[in-house]
Amino acid sequence: MNLTHAITNNILTARLQGDLIGSPDTQQLLEVVNNSINKNIILCAVDLSKVRFINSSGIGVLVSLLTKFRNRGGEMVLINPSEHIRKLLIITKLNAIFTVAEDDAQAANLLKESK
C-alpha cells in the first residue's frame, strides 16, 4: 500500500493506493494519524478511490482510525471507495458508522458540518 497525505484547512487527507490488508503497510498510516492528532488535527478524509482490495485487517484499521478521531471529538470520512469496498461496508453493517463522500470537496463539507 502506498500512502500520501496532506493537511489543509485543519483536515488531514490520507490517500491510499494498492491493497489495504493490515500490518506492516498500515504502520505508516497509523503514525501519520497519531502525529496529526497530537497536533490537534481531529478531522480526517481517507481517499480509498485507488484501493484495489481490503480485508478484515484493513477494515479493522479504518475502524481504529475512526475511533481515534471520534475519541478526540473529531470525525473521519471515506472518499470514493470502490464498489467492492462499499459492498464490504454494507455486509459488515459498517455503512451505518462510516460517512462516505464522493470527492474531496464533499468530504471537506461533511467534516466541517460535523464540528
Rank of each mutant, 00 (worst) to 15 (best):
V77M: 04
I90F: 05
T99Y: 04
L94D: 04
I85C: 02
R86L: 14
F69T: 08
G73Q: 08
I85F: 04
G74I: 00
R70M: 11
E83Q: 14
L88Q: 12
G73F: 07
V77G: 07
F98L: 11
G74N: 03
V100H: 06
G74W: 05
V100T: 11
I79L: 00
E83L: 12
K68M: 11
P81W: 08
N95M: 01
H84P: 00
V100K: 06
R70E: 14
R86A: 11
M76V: 11
N95S: 13
L88W: 02
L65Q: 11
N71A: 06
P81K: 10
T99C: 05
E83C: 06
I85V: 13
V77C: 06
L94P: 09
V100S: 06
L65Y: 04
N71K: 15
I85W: 06
L65D: 01
I97F: 12
P81Q: 10
R72N: 15
R86M: 13
K93Q: 14
K87W: 01
P81S: 11
I97H: 05
N80T: 09
T92E: 01
V77D: 07
T99I: 12
F98V: 09
I79A: 01
K87G: 03
L66R: 11
L88G: 11
F98D: 10
I97S: 08
F69K: 03
L66D: 08
V77Q: 06
L89A: 07
L88H: 03
V100G: 08
L65E: 06
H84K: 15
L88C: 12
F69C: 02
P81F: 08
F98I: 10
L78T: 07
I90G: 05
P81V: 09
N95P: 02
N95G: 13
A96S: 14
P81N: 07
F98T: 11
K68Y: 01
L89Q: 03
P81C: 05
L88T: 15
L66W: 09
R70H: 07
K87E: 15
I79S: 02
I90S: 13
I97N: 06
I91M: 13
H84E: 14
L89H: 05
S82T: 13
I97P: 02
K87Q: 14
F69W: 01
L94M: 13
T67F: 03
H84Q: 15
K93P: 00
R70P: 02
T67L: 04
I85R: 07
K68D: 05
N71F: 04
K87S: 14
I90D: 13
I90A: 13
E83K: 14
L66F: 12
N80W: 00
M76Q: 12
N95K: 07
N80A: 15
G73D: 03
M76A: 09
I79C: 04
E75R: 11
T99N: 11
T92K: 06
I79P: 06
T67K: 15
N71E: 13
